[in-house]
Structure formats: C-alpha cells, structure tokens
Design a protein around this nucleic acid. Structure first.
Length: 577
DNA sequence: GCCGTTTTCGGCCCGACTGTTTTCAGTCG
C-alpha cells in the first residue's frame, strides 16, 4: 500500500470522515470544518505533500492545527487516529448510504443500528425484502423513492463523471511525462477528449521510440492496482481508485493517426476506415498505408484531409451525422473556450463564493476575458447568504472600485435570482432594473410535477428583466436527474422572448446537456457558456461547456458571450427594443 | 474544528419541502 496520496485522495478521505462524523452525530460545525478543508485541498494547484514539507499546511484556508496534523499523518502513514477510531465504530459503507435520496445521517445511523445495513448492497437487499418500512420514520412514499434512487444509482460500470475523469487524465499525463524522458508526444484521448459526460475508460496515447519500455514502466507504477491486459504496445490497467485506464504507445510518426483511432468513438473510426478503404487507404495504429506505402501525416487535420474530410473536432466524433457534414464541407467549427469574451455566471464571497470581487476580476482578466458578470445568489437562498437590495447596493460600490483598478476589463453586476415556489421572482422589478443582467434559477421544488416546474421556468422566461435562465434542468451528471421540465415548451418560449439559455460548465452539472442544446439551437435560442464559478479556480471549467456546445454543433454566433462587451449588453433582452 | 478591522471566545448554515410518528423531524439545496 502506497501513501503517495494525491490532493483529490486526501480531500476524499476528509470528505468521508465528515460523513462518518455526521452519522456519528458530532457537532454540525465540526463536520462542516472537515468538509470545508476537503474542498479547499481539492482545489489546490500545488500537491498538498509539498505544502506539508514546507510546513505550511495551516496556510490552506479551512485547515487549522488539528486538521493539519491529521493530513500530515495521512500522508506519512495512510491514516490517522480519529479516522481509525470512527471507521471502527461505523463501517465506511454506511457513508455510501448518504448518496441515496431520503437517506441522510440520521436515517443512515438508524438503518445501520437497527437493521445492520452497512452498504448499498445491504440496502438494496433490505428494500427487496420489504424490511425498510417503519424504520427511521420511513413510510411507503419514502421507501419508494429510495428504491427508485437505488435503481438509478450510477453502477460502477457506467464509469466516472467527466470532471473526475478529466482531472485524473491530466494527472496521468504528468505521470507519463515524468517516467518517459524521451517522450515525443502524449495526449489524453478516448471519451475524455470527446467530452463524454460519463467516462468508462481513461485512454492515453503516447509516442516514444521504445514503446515496450514505456508500457512496462507505466504498468509498474504504484497507483496501478491491477494489470488487466498488456503487450509491447499497450497496457490496460485498473488504478487503486478503481478507474479503468488504457495506455497506447506508438512510434512518433504514427502519433496523429493513433490519436484519431484512440479518440474514437468506435463507430466514428469504423466510418473513417470504410471511407479509407474506398480510397485504397488503410488506417491502423501503424499509420496510413496506401499500396503498402506509408502515407505521412503530421497532424490529425492531415489524417482527415487525406480521407477527403474537413477536420472533425473530438466532441463531434460519434457518427451522428458529422461525417456526412464533413464530406460536404459543412461542419461548423468547434466551440473553443478561447472564443469566449467573458463569463456571465460567477459568485463571490458576497454570497457562497470563496473569492473577493477584485480577486475574481483579476483572475478573469488573466484568462484573457474582457468582462465578467458577478451573479451572486438572491436573498431567498439563505444557505448561500443571498443578497437583497441593500447588500446589492453595497456590492455595487465594491465593484466600482474594482473596475477602476481593472479597466478596461469590466466587472458587471448581475444576480442569480431565485424563482420562488409560485413562479414569482425573489426581488422587485426596480431592483432588477438597476442590474446589468439577471440570471434566473429554479433551485427548489425540482421534484414537483412536470406542469408545476415547467410553469415556474416559463414565468421566469417571460419576465422582461430575466436575461438568462441558469442551468435549466437542475440535473447533476451521474446523479440527480433534474426537474421534469417540458424542454420543448421551454426552448420555444425562450426563443420567442429572447431569453438566453445557459450551458452551465460546472462538470457536475453540464446543464443544458448536448441534446437539449441541439433542441434549443433548432428552436432559434441563444445560449451562454458560463462557469458558475465559486472560486477563481472554478473559472477555468468553461472548456467543459464548450465541449457540450461543440457536440451539439453550436456556432459562435449563437453564443452570447462570444460577443464583445458593448454588443453583448445590447443583445440582452432588457436592452432590446 | 476554524477563525479573528466585533479577536482566544463565541460565532459559524438558513429555510423550504415532504411525508408522516399528525405537529415536526429529516432531507436537501
């Protein structure tokens, strides 16, 4: 067992400890402290180990003396006293129960104490045998929701959500760069590169002169828990954390073709191969071959060109019509995060964000943006310390002084406005009119009927001062399914009223999803690609949203925030005439 | 457990929704 823990792994230990302490019934603020520290460590740019080696753990926000000591022990020995103690009292599997709807800490405890349920498997069995009824105040309705929740629970075979897989892919990339000094190229390919929202396998392609040596070294890494399959040019392994990983190693001249092959999808590649056959070209991991002669390709673009195709961006490679469009030269360009001129959905410490107005502005400017709209939560979202008219006015003053420092970069003032239970909005029109932009969100009551949730979203869309509808369905990738909105009706009404629909790039949301984006485009809607960042680091997630937009074949002219500031503001519903 | 232009104690994360034990506890955002 190695203790070479990554930041993500340290964070997940602290997160799980928080869950177990909650089940144990500890004070809420202690639990919150562990979770805060976990989140803080998860977003660190630097390995927590090097911070520890410098003796600076306590400089991490949310990490004090006690947690610093525990993290240090975790890095050295793989555990610490409190963790051992709590795990001896409550099996870690009990914490998994918290992922099931209707089951929080109290019920998890009761289910464990009274029925001995210590894992999701045990819960499934108890539901099947009808043993849940009456325990911990669970009635027929709740038991039904638990059964539904268990059925829709992401089986491990469905893989990792893109956010996790992408981070893991990047870590593996760095690892390969370290162990292969003579590396000629390496890239994450497969489902991650295609921005699939769930990833079954993290696929990497590397180019070196001695493939067998790299495969051998990779399979011997401590993070590898099991080698499933391996030969001189490829290895398929399972990591300690359970992730499936494939590494394909080719000679440098075959790298571009290998990238195409291992980026997939299988269906897409099969179509390319049959196109190749028609032109006497064979496509394999050795490269392109015509009449026994290798056809040199220096880039993926060249591979597609040799096949008589426009370059097809990875997110589109699903054989859902992209090849026909590329043959006719009608494929739209990929939406790239670099096309965005600003971010329209961000949070600061005025509500539940981590950074100040100025810190967010500096970070956004450093990314090359020309503007950013702050959209802190509105007052009804008490948990997030939402803003009412008075605090908005105070915030405006802070924004003005930040703008004086950041010009010509511009911070706009907006709000993420709660749509209340009856479809009314959380703030009066006169307050909304003073803001640069309003994003409306349906956060509560997502479990209500199709009619109810749809009519609430429609009320927001129809309001003249609502410019954008945020994360329109409220779904979470690989988790909560989101409200049962009638999307056909929503996109029609958004198009009619000029309300922009958001692609929330937060990898846990990706909302709108690709199919909904297509629906919105066909209806004539405009879209925005936003980060929904709650920290400066969170701003960089927009590439995930760009991936979704690309797969849906959106064009830049349909994305509001590809416009420069003045044009973007003029395009808002409130500023149109 | 963390944190401090309210400092070494006493705050910090509040309120809507839901089903049900029928008067509120537990979940969830």
């Amino acid at each position: 067992m190695t203790h070479n823990l990554s930041n993500r792994e340290v964070a997940s230990v602290l997160q799980r400890l928080g869950d177990l302490l909650e089940i144990r019934g500890e004070a809420v603020f202690k639990i919150a402290a562990y979770r805060r520290a976990a989140e803080s460590i998860a977003t660190l740019a630097e390995p927590v180990r090097s911070i520890r080696d410098r003796g600076e753990l306590q400089k991490i926000p949310g990490v004090g003396k006690a947690i610093a000591e525990k993290v240090s022990s975790l890095l050295d020995t793989g555990s610490f006293k409190l963790l051992d103690e709590v795990q001896a009292e409550i099996p870690p599997g009990v914490a998994e129960l918290l992922t099931v709807p209707e089951i929080g800490a109290k019920r998890a405890r009761v289910l464990y104490d009274r029925l001995g349920i210590d894992s999701l498997e045990a819960l499934k069995a108890a539901v099947a045998e009808g043993r849940l009824h009456g325990t911990g105040g669970l009635g027929p309705r709740a038991v039904e929701r638990i059964a539904e929740g268990l059925a829709s629970l992401r089986p491990t075979s469905q893989g990792l959500p893109i956010g996790t897989a992408y981070a893991l892919g990047t870590e593996l990339l760095r690892l390969i760069e370290q162990i292969a000094p003579a590396l000629k190229g390496v890239q994450v390919a497969g489902e991650v590169r295609r921005y699939r929202e769930m990833v079954n396998e993290i696929t990497l392609v590397a180019a070196v002169d001695d493939p067998a040596e790299l495969v051998h070294q990779f399979c011997a890494q401590p993070i590898v828990s099991r080698v499933e399959d391996r030969n001189d040019v490829a290895g398929r392994v399972i990591l300690e954390n359970g992730a499936n990983v494939s590494l394909h190693v080719v000679h440098p001249e075959a790298f571009p073709v290998a990238l195409v092959l291992y980026t997939g999808s299988e269906e897409h590649v099969r179509r390319l191969q049959s196109l190749g056959t028609a032109g006497q070209l064979s496509i394999s991991r050795d490269g392109l071959v015509r009449d026994g002669q290798k056809v040199q390709c220096r880039s993926e673009e060249e591979v597609y060109a040799r096949l008589g195709l426009q370059y097809i961006p990875p997110p589109m490679r699903e054989d859902t019509g992209e090849i026909e469009l590329a043959l006719r030269g009608e494929l739209p360009l990929a939406i790239d995060a670099s096309m965005l001129k600003g971010d329209l959905h961000t949070h600061t410490e005025w509500s539940d964000g981590k950074a100040t107005v100025l810190e967010m502005g500096l970070a956004a400017r450093a990314m090359g943006y020309r503007y950013m709209c702050l959209t802190d939560h509105s007052r009804s979202l008490g948990v997030a310390n939402g803003l009412g008219p008075e605090r908005l006015e105070l915030q405006r003053a802070e924004i003005q002084s930040a703008n004086a420092e950041l010009a010509p970069f511009r911070i706009l003032q907006g709000i993420e406005l709660e749509v209340l239970g009856d479809g009314t909005l959380d703030l009066p029109d006169e307050t909304l009119a003073e803001l640069d932009l309003v994003i409306a969100s349906v956060h509560s009551g997502l479990r209500k009927s199709r009619e109810v949730v749809t009519s609430r979203a429609l009320a927001a869309i129809r309001h003249p001062l609502v410019d954008i509808l945020a994360h329109p369905t409220g779904r979470l990738v690989g988790g909560r399914p989101g409200g049962d909105f009638n999307m056909e009706v929503l996109v029609q009404e958004a198009a009619r009223t000029g309300t922009v629909l958001e692609i929330d790039s937060e990898p846990a949301r990706l909302d709108l999803r690709d199919t909904h984006v297509r629906l919105a485009l066909d209806a004539g809607c405009s879209l925005s690609i936003d980060s929904d960042a709650h920290s400066t680091g969170g701003l960089s997630t927009v590439h995930f949203g760009a991936g979704v937009a690309t797969r849906a074949m959106a064009t830049p002219d349909r994305i509001l925030n590809t416009l420069p500031l003045v044009e973007m503001l003029a395009a808002l519903k409130r500023n149109r005439q």
